[in-house]
Design a protein around this nucleic acid. Structure first.
Length: 270
DNA sequence: AACCAGGGTGATG
DNA sequence: CATCACCATGGT
């Protein structure tokens, strides 16, 4: 068990249930449980601290980066809020959102599953995916996210119990391209976002939106700005005339404020 | 029953 | 370049 002071802007519910990650679950006692990088974590907030169910070593080597704890989100939120009153309101609605630094393959694969799908079903699909094909995590009943190497050997029939529909072929194509080295995720992490956009779209079923999600949530390319159906509606209604480039280097955070705000206020678009 | 969901593909104007 | 049917599945 190890603790850490809560950064100025960090709310567990806002960050873990805002549609950027699909493996976190709120437990009965109010703490959050999830898996990332093959480790299970239970996370709970006390009055002025976060309690991590892990050794101090994992906190400094895995979770500090995952939760982007060294970044000043308060400063970004204030800067973004000056750009537009509507954005300021969305940011004030969930000031504790942070952009997680997820595993690149997990983000890519999860958002391939997300296409033309809804969030509850995406969560179920990701859960079955891990349960069916991921390495068990000792003493937890949970499983790591399946590796591309493990997936590359499978056939579409093997993925039938996943009930992912036509996305099964997309998942396998992604796994094969990554496992074979045809697609170099480390190079995408290293290079500018535009390189990643071109590379990721070589995968079947990966278009502009899925690539943008993978780049933002898996490669932490913070200027990326995924445009799904919610965001298109929100931009037209709340931020008419503005485009992704107007939000600068932390456009991804602006996008997440707007996305979450829109999803929590569906009546705005009725 | 028809329509929708953090879309993409392939065909057609 | 814009539009459109279609894609598999589950919820409303």
């Amino acid at each position: 068990m190890s603790g850490v002071c809560i950064p100025a802007s960090f709310d567990l519910a806002q960050t873990l249930d805002c549609g950027q990650a699909f493996r976190w679950q709120k437990l009965e006692d109010g703490s959050w449980q999830g898996v990332a990088f093959g480790r299970m974590l239970i996370l709970r907030r006390t009055e002025d601290q976060l309690a991590f169910s892990c050794p101090a070593e994992d906190l400094s080597q895995i979770w500090r980066a995952y939760f982007d704890l060294d970044q000043d989100y308060e400063a970004q939120r204030q800067a973004l809020s000056r750009l537009s009153p509507a954005l300021a309101e969305a940011a004030a609605f969930a000031p504790g959102i942070r952009i997680l630094r997820q595993d690149p393959w997990e983000a890519l694969c999860s958002f391939i599953m997300s296409q033309n799908n809804n969030i509850p079903r995406i969560k179920g699909m990701v859960q079955r995916f891990c349960q069916l094909f991921g390495q068990p995590i000792p003493g937890s009943k949970l499983h790591a996210f399946p590796t591309p190497e493990a997936m590359a050997a499978l056939s579409p029939q093997d993925l039938a119990p996943l009930r992912s529909g036509y996305r099964a072929g997309y998942i396998l194509d992604a796994a094969q391209k990554v496992a074979s080295g045809q697609l170099d995720l480390e190079a995408i992490a290293r290079e500018p976002a535009e390189f990643g956009r071109e590379e990721l779209r070589k995968i079947k079923g990966v278009g502009p939106k899925v690539a943008e999600c993978a780049l933002l949530y898996g490669f932490h390319k913070t200027e990326c700005f995924p445009m799904d159906v919610w965001m298109k509606r929100a931009m037209a209604t709340l931020l008419p005339g503005m485009s992704p480039e107007d939000f600068g280097p932390s456009a991804g955070l602006a996008q997440q404020y707007i996305f979450h705000y829109s999803r929590m206020h569906p009546e705005l678009f009725a």
